[in-house]
Structures are given as C-alpha cells and as structure tokens.
Design a protein around this nucleic acid. Sequence first.
DNA 1: AGGAGCTTGTGAACGTGAGAACAAAATCGG
DNA 2: CCGATTTTGTTCTCACGTTCACAAGCTCCT
Lengths: 251, 251
Amino acid sequence: MTRASSRRPGPPTRTERGIPEATVARLPVYLRALTALSDSGIATASSEDLATAAGVNSAKLRKDLSYLGSYGTRGVGYDVEYLRYQIAREIGVTQDWAVVIVGIGNLGHALANYSGFGTRGFRIVALLDADPTLVGERIGDMEVRDFAQLEEIVEADRVSIGVITTPAGPAQDVCDRLVAAGVTSILNFAPVVLSVPDGVDIRKVDLSIELQILAYHEQRKSGEAALPQVPELPALNGMPDLPSVGGGVGA
Amino acid sequence: MTRASSRRPGPPTRTERGIPEATVARLPVYLRALTALSDSGIATASSEDLATAAGVNSAKLRKDLSYLGSYGTRGVGYDVEYLRYQIAREIGVTQDWAVVIVGIGNLGHALANYSGFGTRGFRIVALLDADPTLVGERIGDMEVRDFAQLEEIVEADRVSIGVITTPAGPAQDVCDRLVAAGVTSILNFAPVVLSVPDGVDIRKVDLSIELQILAYHEQRKSGEAALPQVPELPALNGMPDLPSVGGGVGA
DNA sequence: AGGAGCTTGTGAACGTGAGAACAAAATCGG
DNA sequence: CCGATTTTGTTCTCACGTTCACAAGCTCCT
C-alpha cells in the first residue's frame, strides 16, 4: 500500500529486488505453514501440500515463491527447512526487531502479554503510557514506562517499529512523536487515519472495520429479499433516527 | 476474498446489487470520516473533503460512492448526515448484529472490554470459554459462560457473527462448532488458516503477520546495502541456527 | 541407459482496482 | 434569465493480481 514504487514501463518489472506487495503479505503465512510442517517432522513438501496448509492455490504459491528465487526441485518439491530459512531471511525475521508499544489500555495490555509478542524476530523493548497511574505497573517481565522517555528509548535500543494502541484522540500525536524519534514502521490499532511522511510505513488493524465488512456480506446473505431493492429515500435531513455508527474501537 | 462471485463476461458488471470488495472494505472508513465530520457540526462536504478525512484520493472516493447510488449534488457536495445513513444502511449497521466471542484469554478479555465492541451495530451476547476456571468471571456487565452452551445461545439470540480469540490449537474445532451452530460470519484472531464451508465468510486479523510485513519493508529501508545481494546458499540442511519463526500469536 | 511420471517455474490470458480526465448538472452572481 | 463556477458521476486507460496451462527439469523404475 504505502510501498507502491513507481517504476518504468515495459514488462511487469517484477524483480529488481522488489516483491509484489500482495506476495509480501502472504510470505508470513507460508512461513507459518512451513513451521507447522517442520514441527510435524515433514522434510519435503510439494507446492500443493504447502498451498493447502497456507490456504491458497498452488499456482499462486509457486508464483509467489518464484519471486524469491528457485528454491524448489522439479519432480520433488521444496525442502521445508531450507525454504523456511529463505523466506525468513527475505522477510527479515532472522534478525531481531526492537518494538515499542504505546498505550497500555486493554489492548496494549493484551499485546504485552503475548509471549515475546508471539513471534520470534521481534523484541518488545518498552511499554509506554502517558498516564502516571499506569507507569510502573508490571506486565509480565516488563514495566510500564513514561511516554516522555520515548526518544531516549528509541535511540538507545534502535527501535524501528512502533505499535499504537491508544484511543483515537492522541494517536496522531503519538504517531508524530514516534516518527520524530526515528521510528520508521508503525502498526496502528487506533481507529483513525494517521498521516506520516514518506519513508515511514504504516499498517492499520481495525476491528470495527473488519466487523462491518462481515456485516455487509451477512446482510446480503440473509437480506437478499428482506431488503428494499429500491433504496428508501427519506427526505433530506429527514431520515430515521440514526445510531452513531462508525465510532472507535481504540483501547 | 471469500465473496468473489463468478459473473458472466462483458462490462465490469459492477452493479447488479454487487459492490466491489475493495470498495466494501473502504465504506467503513468513509462512515467513520462522516461521523467525525458530523460531530464537528459540518453539514456538507465535497468529495475532496471526505477523501482527505478518509485518507484516500477523491476520484476513488467518488467512484466508490457511485456504486451505492447518486447521493451527492453536483456543484455542492454530499449531505453528511444523509450520506452517513446511506452508507450505514448499505453496510448493514443500521440493524444490530449479535456477536459471540470465544476464547477469553488476554485478547478476548480486551475485546470484551471495548465499550459495546466500540461500534454500534454490533451487540456482544456472550463471552464463551471452555476453561471451567474462567466460566463465571465477570467482565464489564457480562459473565463468561461455558462453551458448551454455544448452540443454545446462537439459536436463542440469532447470532450470526462469531469472534475466535482462542489459541491456534482449538481454533478449527471452535470454528466448526460455530458453523454447525449456525454462525455464518467469523472473525478469526487465532494464527491458523481456518477452513469453512461455502456460504460462511471468514476474515482474519493476525498481528504477527502485520509485524512481519513491516519488518520486510524495514529491512529494505535500512538494509539495501548491508544485505547480501546474492542470497547466501547454505548447503541443504546446513543453514545457520534458525529461530522458530512464524509462531503463533493466539491469546 | 532410457523412458515414464511428477512437480516446478513461468508465459500468457483474464479479471479487478486505481487514477486521470471530462461531460453533465447544480448553484450563484449579475 | 444567462453565463461562470463548482463539483459530481462516469468513461477510459493503465497497472496489478490471479489463474491457467505447459515446457523444462528432476527422479525413479525397468
């Protein structure tokens, strides 16, 4: 999304050390599938096996893997451990990334409690909150620190990834501070559109949006006939009482 | 994704009461932007205003809205309240959807505590867990109930949406039970690929995948020169010690 | 050694999505 | 009442993503 590099015309211009965004988004899924296979003691897997485990079709998987190189063997399949290492290296999780979590509400709390953030490759170096009553609280083996210490921590620990789990209100300010401190990747759980300068990547996770997408499809399944086919057109400013939809989900 | 209805050829065949998936995913964002504008007392907004608030470009926004109908006025813009109602109706959040949350670990706990799940249009009717030591615990104004009561609850409250916040292990079983009980939309936080029959929509939220996508881009920013351009090829089964990447994030 | 049988890697066709650009329609000022 | 101005709705074009289909390449069996 944020990475749509503008390239010159001609052929799809795939490589050039650039992997399509859609493929990048699936690599972690393949990585997990490979880990599962490896844990089951399976040493070799065909694209069909892998695709099943990852929930995609095999042609797509093969094409995705082809962007990384030719790591399979025709007639045989892929060496699970080898491919796993190659994908991990390509994604960048063979090294450790320092992460700070800002906003220790319900959600921040929950994330902090994930064992090592659930995934190797990432290391939570600080839990930050501006609320003095939270500072000092222990969560697992960490202690909540004052948001004012952000710059200091980012510099000391070379933090490149920030997770925002504050309410919508302060999210943009927190984001600006993170960016100013040198953070270049942000995972945002606050229900707002954050704006960041070029060179900073941002991804958003929004529970209420996911639910609303499900609701749309749900409505088309059950409704189909129960819905007015011609959209009812209440006179301007005269529509029925409307609940405040679209509200926030932030911690 | 799950809703790729196969249609006959010809023109893009947009309407037919079908809105492109990419557009559906943005409607909730527009809804939130409209709510914000409405709360600021703004009665009318141009596509440019709205697009800025929603973080998209105005041409895309106009095209998205055109799938719903002609709700704007040329030379003027859109009536904020009116458009908000139309989008809410199209998404389906003018009615209330009953939701159950299964798996009251850290994350389930956090979700349960969101005020009314953060968004009107959805109503949490039950928090379920199979762990007897959790059953009976009060969270907000709700009480954790036994997972065994699932079918009963789904039927009684006409639950159509289920949220899975269990660890990876039991997730598929929970999913099967939900589907069997009559749930037709699932929001999955467990780090596994769930398989569901046709007619059931599933969406996945996966923190570790989001982080890994950020890591990939981060690596290309900082690495670029520090990385071996030619992928190092450790002999088969002879690669360096590899941390167990791709692990889970489940509660 | 040679052919049969698999499975990968990729070229080509197709479908979906994004953005530029413009004609149609509404308001407003004179 | 008419023309200038604004802004929508839509068409067209291009880029991206997915899927099909098959040649290339590897292994195994005879």
